[in-house]
Amino acid sequence: MDLQMASLFASGAFIIIGLFAAVFIDNLIKKIIGIAFIEEGANLFLICLGYKAGGVVPIFLPGMSADWFAANSAYPLPQALVLTSIVIGASTLAVMLALAMVLYRKHGTLSVSEMMGDEK
């Protein structure tokens, strides 16, 4: 199995574990950890798309021939995109943790079913 395939499987595992945690775990902090897993899985998936086995960094240096560069460089677009989406994931995570703090102070518990269950 090559590196790209292994990373794709890892990203799938991240997403599935994250979805499982986000749906089934009752503790709010653990739910948020699961959600972070989903985001990171999506990021890992994106970054895998630009991978090229034995490729070089996509920076055109003096002395490289254009044909060689085109044949060997990694695809740079996913890397640029992932940078943005990591920032978004981090800010989402920060807002969620802040809300979790407020909710813990209000309810004195981290159990989601007690805070946001049917009777609430």
Partner: peptide, 13 residues
Amino acid sequence: QSDSLEKMTFYVM
């Protein structure tokens, strides 16, 4: 369709 998070996530999934 109450506001319970469990029901919402269930239908979303």
